[in-house]
Amino acid sequence: MIKGSYSEAEEDELVSASIGGDKQAFGVIVARYRKMVARTVKGMLGDSIFAEDVGQEVFIKLFYSLADFRGESKLSTYIQRIAVNLTLNEIKRRKRFFSMFSQKGNNEMHEIEVADHDTEEKREASEIVHKALQKMDPKFRIIITMRMLQGYSTKETAEMLELPLGTVLSRLSRAQEQLKGILEKL
C-alpha cells in the first residue's frame, strides 16, 4: 500500500499494518480515535496535563496489544475499554497518592489546568463543566462520561463497564441529580 493512502483504510487493514510497525497506519488510528479517548479521559480526569499523559498511555498500550485484538468487537470499543481501564487506574492511583499527603482527596489535583483556550469566557465555561464533572463521585462520573459525553446507549455503557443494565440506569439517574446539584452550587 502506498503511504498516505491509509486515511480511507478499513480498521483491519490499519490494525495489521500497525502490527507490522507501520507508523503511518498507526498515526491514522491515533487521529481517528483521539477525540473519543479525549472525551473519556478528560471527562474523568479533567482538563489537566495528567489527562494528556493518560491519553498517550492509552494509545501506547493499544499499540502493544494490537496483536491480541481479534476483531470480535469494534476497534473503537477495544480502545474505549483501554481508556476506561487506564483512567480508572489513574483515579485509584491518585486517590492513594493524595490520601498520603492531603485530607482533601483528589480535588486538589485539578489545580493544574491546560491554558490552551481561546478566550477568557471559553476558559471559564470550560472550567465550570470540568469542575462540575470532577466534583462528581467517580462511579457516577464514568456513567455521565460514557452516556452524555460519548453518546453510548445505556446498554453499550453497561457492556463497556461490565455492569448490569439496571445498575447503569439507576446510577445514571443519580448521576444526573448529582451533576445538577453541583452545577447549582457553582
Binding site: 491515533v30 479525549a38 478528560k42 491519553g55 498517550q56
Partner: peptide, 16 residues
C-alpha cells in the same frame, strides 16, 4: 461552543 474535550494539537506526534 468551544468547550474543549480534545487533546493538544501535537498529541498525535507525541504518541507516535
Amino acid at each position: 461552543d468551544g468547550i474543549s474535550f480534545d487533546f493538544s494539537n501535537d498529541f498525535d506526534e507525541k504518541v507516535i
